[in-house]
Every structure is written in C-alpha cells, then in structure tokens.
Design a protein around this nucleic acid. Structure first.
Lengths: 345, 345
DNA sequence: ATATTTTTGATTTACGTACATCAAATCTTC
DNA sequence: GAAGATTTGATGTACGTAAATCAAAAATAT
C-alpha cells in the first residue's frame, strides 16, 4: 500500500498539520521538525498523489490554442488534433479553447494573443508569425504568468517557454542529403520551390538544404529558389516553367505547401518518374503522390505529437515543473512509400 | 464551471443516488428515469472526472514489464525508459515492476509470465520470444483478466491485447528502398547480416528487404544472408570475410545487433566510406558510426515511445477502454547524420 | 384493498490532499 | 519566572466521485 500523509505523520511522530506545513512549505516549522518529516518521507518513499492534490486544490487547466485559418491541409489536420485532444482531456480538468486567425496576419495574431490574455488561461499555444508585434504580445502573456508554447513555427526573439516543432534546418539538411544521394551520378540541376522567404520555417529549411548541397554535393547545380506562396496554382505554374526551361532537371525540393501544384506540373510534363521530388508534410494529396511515385520522399512533422507535446509542456510550465526535453523533442519523419503509416479514417 | 454529479441530479430532478446508479449502471432504475438522467448529462455536457473517480474507487494500476537480460544496448535503453516511466508514474497511482529474464530462453520467459500472473497485476508488457509455450502463458494471463501487451517483438499466435512495436516488414522494405536508391548505378552486390532467423523481427525485416530489392532493383545481386547472432565479434568476422570475398561489395544491410563488429570490419578493411551500410537501432556506438560515415542510414524504434505507449494501452485495456490506434502506432525513425537528435546525457 | 416487489431518495463514509482555525505546548528574551 | 513569540496539535471542511445503507415512495401483483 502506498504511504499517505497520515503514514508520514505517524512515522515522523508529528501531526498531520505539521506534515502538511512541510509538504507545502508553509511557515511555522522548526528545522528539526522539518528534518524529521523529511526523513519519514524518504524512508517511506512517499510521493504526493497528484490527482488527489489537484482535486483538493480545485486545480484545472485552461489552455488556448491560436491557429491560422485557411485551407492549408496541414493546419486543418493540426486543428483536428487539438479538437481530439480537447475531447480526451475534458475528463482531466483541462479545457482547451481554439482561436483561428487569418494566416500571416501580424495584427490579427497580436489581437488574438491580447484576447487570450484577457481570458487569463493557464497557458497559450500559438503557431507564431515571426514578427516583433507578436513577440511583444507574447511578452505580455508571460508577464501575467501565462505559459506560452510556440507550435510548428517558432518565435526566437521572444521569451516563450518552449517550442513544439521540428528543427527545420535539420529537415532541410536531411532533404539535401537524400536528394544528393538519390541523384547519385545522374546529370542535371536541382530546383527549390519555397512558399515564402518571409516565413521562418521555410528560410531554415532552405538554409539546411543549401548547406548540405554545397558541402557534400558541390558539383550539382542548384537553381535559384522560386516562391510559390503555398498556393497550388502558382506552384504548378512555376514548376511547369522550370520543367520547360530545364529539360534535364534532376530534382525538385518543395519545402512549402502547395504540393498539388507540384505533382500536377510533373505529371502534365510526363516527368513525374524522371524527376526526384522531395516535399514536406503528409496530407491525403501528398500521400497519393508518394504512392504513385510522383513524390519520392516526404518529410513530415506529426501534428498529433506536436499538439500533445504542447499540452504536456503547458501544463508542466503552468505548475512550474520541469519538462523532459528528450520526450518533447518532435522528430522529423521521413516517409518513403514503404514506411507510410496506414491511412486512418 | 464544469458540471458535477450534483448538477446532473438537480437538472434531471432526481437524487444523487439515482444519478450514481445510472452513471455506474447499477440496477434498480426505470428506463424513463434513466432517460431523464441521460438527457441531463447530455444537455449539461457532463464528463466524469476520472481523477476523482479513481480516487474514490481506490483504483491503482500495477503493471509488470518482462524484459530480456544481457548487454544488448537497445534492451538496456528500453529498461532505462521503463525505470524513468516508473518514477514519473509513482505519483499517478501506477506501479511498475520489472522482471529481467535470460534472452531467447523460452522456459525462463514462460516462468516469468507465470510468476507475473501470481502477482495479479492489472497488466503485463513483455518483449516476447516467439514460442508456443510463451503464447500459452499469455493465454493464462488473459484468462485471469490481465491485459497483455507485447513490446518490440510480437507474438502473433496469442491473444495479446496489443503490440507496441514497429512494423518490421515495412522497416525492411524501407531499408531496401534506401539501399537501392543510394547505390543507384554503382556496381557490386549487396550483403545482409542478420542476428538470427529464429527471431521474428529479423525474419520480417529480411522479408521486406528482399521483397523490395527483387521488386524494384532486380539487377542488383543479393548475397545469401549471414547470421551474426547479435554478437559483435562474430559479426566482425563474418563481415570481414564478406569484404574479402567480394572486393566490389556495394552495400551491407545489418538488420540485427552487433553493429560494433560491422563498423570494425569496415574500418579495418578501409572500406567504411565505399560500402553503403544500413543498420538498425540508435545506440552510442551506431550514432558515432553514423556521424563518421561508416554507417549511412540508421533505422530506429524509439524505446521511450514504445514504453509509454505500452503503459497507456495497458491502463486503457485494464479499464476496458478503447485505445486510439493512430496515437499508439510506433513509427520507424530514419536517421541520417543530418537529422540525428542531440545526444542526451 | 392489501401484499409484494421495484424504484427512488436521503444520508453517510471514504479516497488523499489542501487549507483554515484555534487551542495548547514549547521556545525566547528580559 | 513572566511575558511574548513561535511552533505544534487537533479538528473540520472541501474537492468530485463511489459505494453502501435504510427508509420512503411508487409500481405491480394478488
């Protein structure tokens, strides 16, 4: 049987009230007495029952998630994961509210953060737009003792408690390594399609990709980056142009969204097989393209993991507890058609 | 404020006792009354506070982990993860005991399972040896209503509740795909080093690897499998022989343990760079080899994830709850030197 | 209508911890 | 050794649910 506070009191030869004073370090205990109690705790191996403690304290966690609106598949998947987590955590004194704001809109995001602050939650998770106004709004939250976690996209200039997302430089490097090795001695240049260089993730992926290509595959010609604004139609136009201009194009690294356009362009040109395509994020579209061979490798961040990690960290930070960094590291998934997880309904 | 059972009683116009009868489906409630209560639950959006319920019930989970003894790096890492989880879960009414049994010893494992059964835990997690006696012992546990999860290595002939591990056929296919593409047009045969064909994981990895090589890279000569018994010294000897016999050896897939031997052989022959090596499990040794270039790709299963997943599933099964399959799927990590996680102390 | 069974209400205790109050005991200090 | 301050004990209530008891009410059977 696990020891309780009563057992500690008996073992230490003090009253329950004194044990309580020691456990919750309240004043009015002589150090000799405190020692006695602490020794009893150690010998009996007492650990506080957090469930009972939270019940007694009436502790509950209210969290707010701020996500970009719009029809980005990945972001909608992320939202679905937040909703799933909310349903599960309803039974565990944790309430989650979701705020959707227009994508890439600095003012809207700052406003949403201010609104979140007004609601005085225990913590806020935000897919951050990398702007000073947003960093400023995060500071205000932190000043009010609200835990803040950035999700997917970080905000390095701020004092956010934690970033729940992948190392995008490493992701870019990985893409570079795979591209270089997959192409081997095959001739032809490599193109990079980004969403926008204004977004931190994309800049970092590009940086990593270019670094590896320069370092390890320096004979390979790297074409200038084109920006598709994460828009499928624009991406298709740009990639079609690339394919036309470079009949010997060997590979394409698509580090943003809009993969539908990439695949459409490749297939219309009849070069889906010939060109080695590496893209990001597993969505219904990219899954199909991977299986058909139009895309060769998909790099992915698991939205479910990111959301669950963000929640764990927010709760821990709200209670002033340490987080296990190793457990909260979000890994870069590499999917080939052979290790694609079964599609879920 | 979240509604409580009292609120339900008030809303439904019945007593607390009746609400309790409905919630815990005890007998003695007319269906009309039951409906009233259920409607109140729905309208107020009541969800049972599991922490309070478990406290009241005095519910606690005792789990037993059965792991192979020996100096296998991966298994010791797994044990460390179990210990870490035990320390964390002590505060959450979950007690974990660890039983180590000699590796690959069918009798010892059956005995351990019988011993576990005697202790009447809520659940048992076991790194299963694939043998009928073990499956039989698992049946006995299940008959006693004890939840059973296989860990890392499955036991398909049994009625275990769940398998917490990776799809090893997919892992083998992934290795095959990467090997084929990394080698490209380079000439030379590919060798496979297994631990033992008596172990299910290894058989499955081999099956997947061979299938992809035959299917997609059929011009590549695949040498007959050699078995290194997961022993570094033996692996070194076998790989050295392979290197000598095949001066044009292009690649090696090591699907078992003993990577120290693999790397030693490659380095002594001065062919660490030239030969494309794909191996399994991230350990301090394999990490070094990946960074030095001796190993080109590491496939890994995250022991921490597997342990935490096993615990979640065991608790859910013990309570007769459903598990979220998507959340419990253990992914195959693919590590290149570029996406290797920071080493933890 | 009465007897019998079934359903419901009212109330209490318990789980392990937090927190508050007030009295009693023990220390300081002069 | 008395006055004051500090430390400790005893006790009660609360959190939200589970589970039990016994009485009261309502339904059903005779």
């Amino acid at each position: 049987m696990r020891p309780t506070v009563h057992d500690i009191a008996a073992e230490a030869g003090v009253s329950l009230a004194t044990v309580d004073r020691v456990l919750n370090n309240r004043p009015g205990v002589r150090s000799v007495t405190r020692d006695k109690v602490e020794r009893a705790i150690a010998t009996l191996g007492y650990v506080r029952d957090v469930a009972a403690a939270n019940l007694a304290k009436g502790r509950s966690y209210s969290l707010i998630f701020i996500l970009p609106a719009g029809e980005n598949s990945f972001m909608r998947g992320l939202e679905a994961e937040v909703r799933a987590a909310r349903a599960r955590l309803a039974a565990e004194r944790t309430e989650i509210a979701i705020l959707c704001v227009p994508a890439f809109d600095v003012c809207a995001m700052a406003d949403a953060l201010a609104e979140a602050r007004r609601q005085r939650p225990a913590g806020v998770a935000v897919v951050a737009v990398d702007a000073p106004e947003v960093a400023q709004a995060v500071e205000h939250l932190r000043e009010d003792g609200i835990a803040v976690v950035t999700l997917v996209s970080d905000l390095p200039g701020s004092t956010r408690d934690h970033f729940a997302g992948v190392d995008n430089i490493a992701a870019g490097r990985t893409a570079g390594n795979l591209m270089g090795r997959f192409l081997g001695d095959r001739a032809g240049p490599v193109a990079v399609v980004a969403g926008s260089m204004l977004v931190r993730d994309h800049r970092e992926r590009l940086e990593g990709f270019q670094a590896v290509m320069r370092q390890c595959f320096d004979t390979r010609l790297l074409l200038p980056v084109v920006e598709g604004q994460d828009d499928a139609a624009l991406v298709e136009k740009l990639v079609s142009a690339l394919l036309e201009r470079h009949p010997d194009l060997a590979g394409i690294y698509s580090l943003g969204a809009g993969n539908r356009g990439l695949v459409a362009a490749l297939e219309k040109a009849g070069r889906a097989e010939a060109v080695c395509a590496i893209a990001h994020e597993l969505t219904p579209y990219s899954r199909t393209a991977l299986l058909s061979g139009a895309i060769d490798v998909l790099l992915n961040q698991d939205a479910g993991h990111e959301v669950r990690s963000a929640i764990r960290v927010l709760k821990a930070k709200a209670d002033g507890l340490a987080v296990i960094e190793a457990q909260e590291r979000i890994r870069i998934d590499i999917f080939l058609k052979d290790n694609l997880p079964i599609e879920q309904a």
